[in-house]
């Protein structure tokens, strides 16, 4: 049985470590915040200029000056700090953020990532995605294993324009988890969703991987 969106977020949350500074992308990655293990100290960065993102505000307590990178109203914590966009991307580009969880359209077997230009749609822009994959120490991608028409999204080469070259460290799909120990290595099949076999994963993947 393939993993659900919530399962993907839970699995990505297992990559969190105590003391990490983390940036979560929009969509399933945002759900990862709901699964931070109790007692683990993780600071969420929002690239529009905030460290220490709190939960959504109570109704009536929304503050137009306090939003996350998805433009959603949020709250601050006792430990929060605010800063400019250039300081924010200094943190990101400078390798000060430990982990980023992002969505994807395609991941290549060499770790290339495409997630900013949707085919056949108006290009909205890359936002901070290119900076995140270029600077964050460890990049975890969550995505559906196949597109709606069944095509493989983990493939030999990305066909869509890249967000970053050789930047993905872990790939979590609804069928399996792939990981590589460093950016010179190939991906290895690490885990399978319940009831899913390695043969099924191989049949639905055009990328080469080990294990």
């Amino acid at each position: 049985m393939p993993w659900t969106r919530e399962d993907l977020a839970k699995r990505a949350a297992r990559e969190l470590r105590d003391g990490y500074y983390v940036n979560l992308g929009i969509g399933i990655p945002t759900l990862v915040a709901n699964y931070i293990p109790v007692g683990m100290d993780v600071v969420l960065q929002s690239e529009n200029g905030m460290l220490g993102m709190g939960p959504f505000p109570y109704e009536g307590e929304e503050d137009a000056d306090l939003i996350n990178a998805g433009k959603q109203t949020i709250t601050e914590l006792a430990t929060s700090s605010f800063f400019s966009s250039s300081d924010s991307f200094g943190m990101i580009r400078g390798g000060h953020i430990h982990l980023s969880v992002l969505g994807a359209l395609e991941v290549a077997e060499n770790g290339d990532l495409a997630n900013w230009m949707v085919p056949g749609k108006m290009v909205k822009g890359m936002g901070g995605a290119m900076d995140l994959v270029a600077g964050v120490r460890r990049v975890v991608v969550v995505m559906e294993h196949n597109s709606k028409d069944g095509a493989a999204k983990f493939k030999p080469r990305c066909e869509l324009p890249l967000t970053g070259a050789n930047c993905v460290d872990m790939l979590i799909t609804d069928l399996a988890v792939f990981e590589r120990p460093d950016r010179k290595s190939r991906f290895r099949l690490l885990e399978l969703a319940p009831g899913v076999t390695a043969e099924q994963v191989r049949a639905k993947t055009s990328a080469a991987f080990d294990g």
Partner: peptide
């Protein structure tokens, strides 16, 4: 003209 957000911020800085 699209710029990555951090590149845009740093270009302005």
């Amino acid at each position: 003209e699209f710029n990555p957000q951090g590149t845009l911020a740093e270009r302005i800085r």
